[in-house]
Design a protein around this nucleic acid. Sequence first.
RNA 1: AGCGGGGUAGGGUAGCCUGGAGUGCCCGCCGGGCUCAUAACCCGGAAAUCGGUGGUUCAAAUCCACCCCCCGCUACCA
Length: 493
Amino acid sequence: MKRFITTPIYYPNSKPHIGSAYTTIVSDFFARLYRELGYKTYFLTGVDEHGEKIQKSAESKGKSPQELVDEMADSFKAAWKKLGISYDRFIRTTEDGHKKLVRDVLRKVYEKGDIYKDVYEGYYCVGCERYYTEKELMPGLLCPYHHKPVEKKRIDAYFFKLTKYKDELLKYFKENPKFLSPKYKEEILNKMDDIKDICISRPVSQVSWGITLPFDEGHVAYVWFDALLNYMSGLDGKMEFWPPDLQFMGKDIIWFHSVLWPAMLISAGYELPKREIAHGFLTVDGKKMSKSLGNVIDPLEVAERYSVDTLRYYLLTKVPFGDDGDFSWKGFKEAHNSELLGHYGNLANRLAKLWQRAFGDSKGESPKELDERFKKLENIKEKIIELAEANDVEKLLNFYGESFLHGIGDINAYLNEKEPWRKEGEEAKEILRNTLEAFLYMTTLLKPLLPVSTKKVMESFNINLNIKDVELGKLGDEATIPEELMLFKKVEE
RNA sequence: AGCGGGGUAGGGUAGCCUGGAGUGCCCGCCGGGCUCAUAACCCGGAAAUCGGUGGUUCAAAUCCACCCCCCGCUACCA
């Protein structure tokens, strides 16, 4: 039982934004979940450091490309650290191991006869000294920077025989219906009708910051051919994790992962990934996020103003996976104050205070007899295991959102009904033992969703549980009960 | 234009593939309970012709056809 989970490697021409944070948090949730369930898990993320933009950006800043990407890689690592991302490996495409692997694969594919030299015809801007695609140009075929007409120019380039694998890809899609991301499946299938061979090289004269082709040092590899292979080089030879089980990404790059990527792997002779899965984009108050609108939400700011868990909780349970999702500061505040603090945080403190009052000491105890209503909490765990085995990411996210509210709500309702504060002695104690037992159990199940606050609970109660082994019944006996516990701070503004 | 996704109470969603009483969840609103807890918790209620029209069926939010509205994609940019 293993799971290999990946995020795309991000292009570090700016610091991490909410989109990359979203993908990474989703991936992190699943990595944590599978670890909790006892799977051998490998969670890979990183940065894609080659290409013309990095090269140009470094020039304009008077730095070498390597200096620039070193800085950017650090800024990504720092951001993920603040957000508590539990990656096993942070891959950088400028690493020697990665470069070597890319060249090895290119050679294999070349020797197989799947790469050929042909003429690339493109729109060339003399001022920019580079080629543009038609889509990038302004109306009237003008260069977007110089606003001058571009010229059609022909150049030698290498092409990958994507068309050769069309039938094999279609067969794989058919036999593995979960491979393609549900919301984008039809779109990919339709596009398969007119796929073309893809140009996979750039002349060194245009882009020098890249990996040169092993069979022609005058060209560097097209970024996608370079970047996609991070999923293999990032394993550092631990091929027992191959192939990837869950590859997360934004919907903009699903085509490359669904078509080009598996075709490359077939050509090079590797097993194909299990699921390519895309999420939607995030809008703010219904509008696209953009610098010009000034409505860009910085994930680190959310984490600071509210908490890391608030950001996670919101993204994982409030944004419908696969579709575009809207969010707002108001939404964060509600999720934070009403759901996380009100239901969960308040319950933790409520339990701690009631316990002190009834027992007068901090020694935990399990119930003599577990209340009937709490036995159904075990169904939550079973359902999680079942959905996890099936790799059903959408249902898992939905289920977690609902289980949180139901599970915690049930415990609060139990307290309201039993009113232990109006009772004395053994009767009050047994109610609280039940509450404690259910609370610890739910907390364990919530670890992947709320890693920071559940860890705080575990530490405060001096206990260490995981989803795989946790069983209702004797959890309380192992715990010590804190005098009070504030998991979330109320945010007024 | 082609293709794809979406249109379910005031807002946001799940359900649709594998038809079976409008069934669920969050926010908001109204009423009640509790007062142990971070004015937090719990219970109840109002509110929807499930985008429209037609069809299949004993039965349609769910299947089929057409139409309307919103959004996105159309790859050799990173």
